[in-house]
Design a protein around this nucleic acid. Structure first.
Lengths: 199, 199
DNA sequence: GGAAGGTCGAACCGACCGGTACCATCTCGA
DNA sequence: TCGAGATGGTACCGGTCGGTTCGACCTTCC
């Protein structure tokens, strides 16, 4: 990018955001400095600091955008599986499995960030992120006619996060997602003994 | 500790190890420097570097010792519950729940370390740590007469790690452990339909 | 044409990092 | 009594960090 070649300040902001999202995920929040971040995106530090105020501000923006994107991606995967709750749940874990198998997979960026910067505001983003997951899972549990949709959703959330951790630190590829999927379907079947959906 | 007051070099090493274990867990691997670490334990940097060679060497020693301690703690909890596999599994998650409820709980130190320093050797320690968990869980699954003990153990591992993550980043206290325990017992019952153990 | 504003590139700042070197001090065993 | 060894304290090193500032440049709009 040439010196004053700015088609749009918003465009610059998005370019920084996209590059930072990738690099902060690959290297960790403390694994890359502002200087290198700027060099990678081709922006100057002044530009970055005018758009985001500080490195923490940039991290916040990255995490918030990523949380929203990931939650929508999972919800779309569930919706695309049709009306059957079991199929929706299977689709969620299949989507997770594809994610785990991607070459650059490093666990959940939001959870990782909350682990690295254990205080605020990364923690708040993580809580909100898991709440988004719970919303989706609770909806599926309700559609399945579970006796305790909220409780089942929390169990399913534990399976999702556990599979993500195990896929990152122990298994390779989608194996963890497969185990978690079978566990999730077993729990769903046990919680909603009737075969038909509530409708 | 006064200047030359050294009862035993091994004692000094253990003191550094204990203090570093606590502080590195509370603040994160990159959240505390060698200087502050030394000040906290009352040792000089020269002493620390003579015992551990480098900060990474200290971290390795801390993680290895912690992994062994935690694995033994969980195995003891299971053993203390008697011969019934379901009771052993319940005891494991109850122990986890007590851990989650402790004031300074910050997730699994080994997994956190592997997340922060994603490369070696923290990753190797994490793999070994999860293998220790798998050993215990496989043993329980076998005693329960599960058709696929290894597969069930992997599902249970996912529940443990998921509960730990959720307890750290979303729930408070032992709630996550309770949900995970009920899920684990349901999976165990489904995998080993006969009520009696294989013996 | 000219002012305004976004941008790059680089220099710079103070703080902190991991790691090394040196020395006075203390304990212990010969 | 005296030397050997472990230690605490301190100063220091090169490097990197997040963040600020400044000047030159380019584009856009009036």
């Amino acid at each position: 990018m040439a010196k004053g070649t700015s088609l749009d300040p918003a465009r610059t902001r998005e370019a920084i955001l996209a590059s930072a999202t990738r690099l902060l995920y690959e290297r960790g929040l403390d694994g890359i400095g502002v200087a290198e971040l700027c060099a990678a995106v081709g922006a100057s530090k002044e530009t970055l600091y005018r758009h985001f105020g500080s490195k923490d501000g940039l991290v916040d923006a990255v995490l918030a955008a990523r949380s929203e994107r990931v939650a929508r991606w999972l919800a779309d995967a569930a919706e695309a599986a049709g009306p059957d709750p079991a199929a929706q749940l299977a689709a969620v874990f299949d989507a997770l499995g594809n994610w785990y198998a991607e070459p650059g997979f490093r666990g959940c960026a939001i959870v990782n960030a909350a682990t690295q910067h254990h205080g605020d505001p990364a923690r708040a983003v993580a809580v909100r992120h898991l709440d988004r997951y719970l919303d989706l899972l609770t909806r599926i549990a309700q559609q399945a006619g579970a006796a305790d949709p909220s409780g089942l959703a929390r169990q399913l959330l534990i399976l999702i996060e556990g599979a993500t951790v195990v896929a990152d630190h122990h298994e390779t590829g989608a194996a963890a997602a497969e185990y978690a999927k079978h566990a999730a379907l077993a729990l769903l079947a046990a919680a909603a003994p009737t075969e038909r959906t509530t409708r």
